[in-house]
Design a protein around this nucleic acid. Structure first.
Length: 267
DNA sequence: AAGTGAGTCAACCGCACGAGA
DNA sequence: TTCTCGTGCGGTTGACTCACT
């Protein structure tokens, strides 16, 4: 990444963009392409920061940005992805062509969080021996607010959060050390301050938080188990509201993260 | 008609990360 | 190896709209 000695911080405009500013930016990028955001304002004749130009282009001016209402399918996908990834809006946006992370984030905060909560409450009132935390609880800082594993038995499944935790499934009888050995290196670097064991059929799911705050997220867990026999047991404990692993969910999740190492590069 | 509160969304802010110097 | 800076990300803010009283 190159560096520029150029500085252009004085007298910058802030706030809403005008049509003429939009046109200047569009014309410049159409001619010269994206990138070099710090120099674009100067070269395009804009009194804006590079950050502001980048944001305006990516979230609004780009030709393939999809405007308008979200479809039912998009709603469903966002809710599923949010359960899986938490507030990782850029990753979620990457699965929705034409939608930006900012747009999805706004949409979630204003609309889908409520919808997701409503769906959860609907499930709560159906006869079931499965306990789940509400999807909106992804915003909570720790999984410690959920029922302790001591209260868990074979008939009750405590569903760990899909964010700010790591889940590692391993056969009953294996020690925590064995579980730790299959954790990603980045996770092992942290010190575990919470550890919960939850029995799911013949496997255990470990739910950990780390003191350095550099906690794992569930997509790492997915990568960990993608293709392994325990993957289905992990599926038991997460995904989209179905308690039992079904072929469609396994296929969906597998395809979602089997992106030729794309995700792995980001992690 | 005016006031008010809730909802929406574009834009800003601060931070982390990575790469070049 | 360290420093500096560009880039990208998630959280937050504030202006605007609209429904309701």
């Amino acid at each position: 990444m190159g560096r520029s000695s150029y500085s252009f911080e004085e007298g910058l405009n802030k706030g809403a963009w005008t049509t003429s500013e939009d046109n200047l930016l569009i014309n410049y990028i159409n001619k010269h392409g994206e990138g070099k955001w710090t120099t674009i304002p100067y070269k395009a004749g804009l009194k804006r920061s590079g950050k502001s130009c980048r944001l305006r282009w990516l979230n609004y001016l780009r030709p393939n940005v999809k405007r308008g209402n979200f479809s039912e399918e998009e709603d469903d996908l966002i809710i599923r992805l949010h359960k899986l990834l938490g507030n990782r809006w850029s990753l979620i946006a990457g699965r929705l062509p034409g939608r930006t992370d900012n747009e999805i984030k706004n949409y979630w905060n204003t609309t889908l969080a409520k919808k997701s909560r409503f769906l959860h409450l609907s499930q709560m009132h159906q006869p079931s021996n499965i306990q789940r935390p509400p999807a909106s609880d992804h915003l909570l800082p720790s999984s410690s607010t959920y029922p302790s594993p001591q209260a868990t038995n074979n008939k009750t499944l405590n569903r760990p959060m899909a964010i700010r935790c790591d889940k590692v499934a391993f056969p009953v009888g294996e020690s925590s050390a064995v579980a730790a050995s299959v954790m990603p290196e980045t996770i092992k670097a942290g010190t575990i301050i919470e550890e919960e064991l939850v029995q799911v059929k013949e496997n255990m799911v470990m739910n950990c938080s780390f003191e350095d705050g550099n906690v794992a997220v569930s997509d790492q867990a997915v990568m960990e188990f993608n293709g392994l026999p325990d993957f289905e047991s992990w599926m038991l404990n997460d995904v989209d509201g179905d308690c039992l692993p079904d072929a469609e969910n396994v296929e969906w999740l597998t395809s979602l993260f089997d992106m030729e190492g794309e995700l792995q590069k980001q992690l």
